[in-house]
Structures are given as C-alpha cells and as structure tokens.
Amino acid sequence: MKTFSEFLAMGGYASYVWSAYGLALIVLGWNALAPGRRERALERKLAARPERRSA
C-alpha cells in the first residue's frame, strides 16, 4: 500500500495532477453555487417589484 505522501507526490507529477483536479474543483464549485445565488437574487429582486395594476 502506498503511503499518504507517496499519494500526494503522484509519482513526480504532483503539480500537474493536482492543478488539474484543483481546476476541476473550481469549475464544478462555481457551476454548483453561482446559479443558486443568481436564482435567490433574482427572486428577491422580482418579489420587491411594485404591484402591477393589471396583468
């Protein structure tokens, strides 16, 4: 079984492998959070509109 530091070293390719996974985390995280934030902001904005007289 590999030790944890060997795992982190990725056979000498640590910088490439972990940068790739880090980028994936950023892209996935942004796509998971940003739409939800936008939805809440939009709902607040639309709910705060003055009532319309007629539809």
């Binding site: 990725m10 056979g11 000498g12 390719y13 490439y16 492998v17 790739a20 996974y21 980028l23 994936a24």
Partner: peptide, 8 residues
C-alpha cells in the same frame, strides 16, 4: 501517475 488527469 500522470494518466490520472484522464478522470477530469
């Protein structure tokens, strides 16, 4: 180990 980039 570099091939593990394939998974993303």
């Amino acid at each position: 180990e570099s091939f593990r980039i394939i998974y993303v």
